[in-house]
Nucleic acid binder design. Sequence first.
DNA 1: TAAAATCGAAACGTATGCGAAATAATATGA
DNA 2: TCATATTATTTCGCATACGTTTCGATTTTA
Lengths: 126, 126
Amino acid sequence: MGIDLNEFQALDLWHRAIVSSVQIDAPDLSARQMALLLSVYLNPPPHTVRGLSQFLKVSKPAITRAINRLSEFGMVRRKIDDNDRRSVLIQRTVKGSVFLREFGELIVNAGNQENQADPSSLPPKY
Amino acid sequence: MGIDLNEFQALDLWHRAIVSSVQIDAPDLSARQMALLLSVYLNPPPHTVRGLSQFLKVSKPAITRAINRLSEFGMVRRKIDDNDRRSVLIQRTVKGSVFLREFGELIVNAGNQENQADPSSLPPKY
DNA sequence: TAAAATCGAAACGTATGCGAAATAATATGA
DNA sequence: TCATATTATTTCGCATACGTTTCGATTTTA
């Protein structure tokens, strides 16, 4: 019970969505940052630096930096774990929810476009 | 004749695919870089700096830098336009095709996963 | 042919990101 | 207690990216 896509449909969907995101000047997140953000929102809490580091197979300092960046955008928030004050819990925010909801709409809209089977039949975009 | 997705399915698909990409240590491209790469491969040629700049609504120097980066990865190639030697044509490469084909597989596989309607019912990943 | 326009790249100062190693704070265990 | 382990962050030197401006090459226009 998944989403049946062939390879061209998959890339075409990704293309339309990410182009829309760039065109509207959304924050230019790297793949790592986007993976982290989505993990915080779609995987069940709690989220810690070490946990995200292991899940994404990325070093802990890299996770810390990605959280710094996303925090500046207000998309996640740090909260010290009262049960283990060495740990930091990464939490969701309203701004992050709004951003991801809008990003999801972009993908949905990208999927709603008429899809050509043959990319060379697409009209020039410029 | 599109791809019917609801918002959660869309974000979940994006999440699974981009997490896979990060986990296998694929090049950590920014949204801009990925949008440029996909545009070169999925929009019909010819591709020029100014054309891509207008299409993506991003400054020309930013396009130049993204092409530099993707060129270092061997994913695109520059070719001077013989009809107007001021212009540079951005062309596809074998390495870029391979990368996007593999990335497409990642998305297809992400779509093939069993999808839960309720994200809180997902098992912990770590 | 000379002047203006166009194109992509380079230069500039600043901001962000990297991995590796070191550090501070906290918890655990002998 | 007090040495050890764990957790997240900071620091280091270096690489990459930003927008603005400038530049050199080329084409178009007057």
